[in-house]
């Protein structure tokens, strides 16, 4: 069984910071569980497929805020870069590679959290 601290370590997150702010592992786990149900990433992906850059920026921005709130610093950094590129709300050659990077980071993130929560089903 993985601990929250190990989970953060594996994800490159800042455990010290999150535990200082949230105090208990239970609360962190609760919010990590909510993150699995959050559809910002889905929105981001769909919006990009539809070339709807306004929604893409918003979804990416929201996701960035959520990740920062959870001290998931390394994923937040990746999403943050994507957010900055999307801020212009128009097509850009950097979007593709950055999104791929973000998708990879996000998949790893959800996989590790599912592992932590003992969930096996794929979202």
């Amino acid at each position: 069984m993985m601990t929250v601290e190990q989970c953060y370590k594996q994800l490159g997150g800042d455990y010290a910071d999150i535990i200082r702010r949230m105090r208990t592992d239970e609360r962190v786990i609760k919010f990590l569980g909510m993150l699995l149900r959050d559809d910002s990433f889905c929105q981001l992906k769909t919006a990009l497929e539809n070339e709807d850059y306004e929604t893409a920026f918003r979804a990416s921005h929201t996701l960035k805020g959520v990740l920062l709130n959870l001290s998931l610093t390394s994923q937040a950094r990746v999403i943050s870069e994507l957010t900055e590129v999307l801020r212009a709300r128009q097509a850009n050659e950097q979007i593709g590679p950055l999104f791929d990077q973000a998708e990879m980071a996000y998949r790893q993130l959800t996989a590790v959290i599912e592992d932590l929560l003992g969930k096996k089903e794929q979202s």
Partner: peptide, 12 residues
Amino acid sequence: DDSDINRSLLAD
């Protein structure tokens, strides 16, 4: 806030 997570974080 449009994010559920962010709202409940504050609410908590």
